[in-house]
Amino acid sequence: MAETLEDLNLPQAVVARIIKDALPDGVNVSKEARLAIARAASVFVLYLTSCANDVATQHSRKTINGPDVIQAISDVELNMFIEPLKQSLEGFKKVKEAKKGAAKKRSSKENSNPNNDDEEVVEDEQNTSGQEVPAEVDEDAE
């Protein structure tokens, strides 16, 4: 659902920055060229989407997931893209796991600390999990 045509373009400023990063200092980029690159990038995303969707469909899945994208990249023979993207995917997963881990840690902390004290366990069982945290922190400090 595109409201306007501009909505489908990638933001100019970001594209301009990426272009600038790619080129050495002192090289200028004409406005037309920037526009052409931005448009090309949009089309590239669309093209890759279609390829990734094909991959997902082949595996009789409805959801395009990360590996599908990487498979699509290799389908369109942009092989030098694969390695950075794999790294990127790994990084993304790591961040996700870290977030999950942090959440787990917190919940496990809630459970593990009371084990030191029998009374606390009873208390814990009585309490609902959400309210324990501040109380425990206080105990740790003592």
Partner: peptide, 8 residues
Amino acid sequence: KAAEIFIH
């Protein structure tokens, strides 16, 4: 990421 590399 891919689009970024592509632009590059």
